[in-house]
Amino acid sequence: MTAPPILELAMLELVGLRKAYGSLEVLRGIDLRVHPGEMVCVVGPSGSGKSSMLRCCNRLEESTGGQVVVDGVDITKPGVDINTVRQRIGMVFQQFNLYPHLTALGNVTLALRKVQNKPGPEAEKLGLAALERVGLADKAHAHPAQLSGGQQQRVAIARAIVLEPKLMLFDEPTSALDPETVGEVLKVMRELRESGMTMLVVTHEMGFARAAADRVIFMDAGAIVEEGPPAEVFGAPKHDRTRAFLARYTGGH
């Protein structure tokens, strides 16, 4: 993919993003732009700060420096209504985090009903449509415990996309899945990408990142070490640390 023109407004822009717990720096000044419709995959060893960076993008974690600009709005500024901002930023978690006391449809419609005050029938219609998109309309009335891991994660994706976010954050969405259900979740993510969604994906699925990402970021020790098209980062990594990391991954497979 050719680089988008420099003047195009990024959907997500991190400017000198820092995060520290006391004296422990987990993010040491991250600069990153994700353009509309782009899917960026973030790879790197555990503890490299990938998840912290992602969680700063909707302020589930508060950054200690720098800016997070979503669709032109710096969401780290005081006075920002974070609950409004979060409706435009979907998030999918490693552990799915479905609400076990609600059905799949209940999970998907909760924010529609509580946050957007949509009347019941309208929320259900939208919720069913979102479940349809992830191929689970027939499981609308199942509780999470009755679903496989892959199905739960697809419901979690439906719960996020039903709010029609402009940006989706994925935090290792397939790491907690049985190998045989990883594929169905990646397929849904690919379809989402094709529909034009802007996506930032922290993942250990190198095959997926290589095949589906527009751009790959390699992070280590709280900083971006290398970034570029997947063919470059995976095929001809410039940095030793990237090479060492990839060797461990591809060597293991």
């Binding site: 589930l60 979060r86 998030m91 978690f93 924010a111 946050v115 996020a160």
Partner: peptide, 21 residues
């Protein structure tokens, strides 16, 4: 699990809505 309230907050629910729902 902490993920329960994080998931709710990530969809825009307030602290109080997350608590009650």
């Amino acid at each position: 699990p902490r993920g329960q309230s994080e998931a709710a907050r990530s969809t825009g629910l307030t602290w109080g809505q997350t608590m009650s729902a």
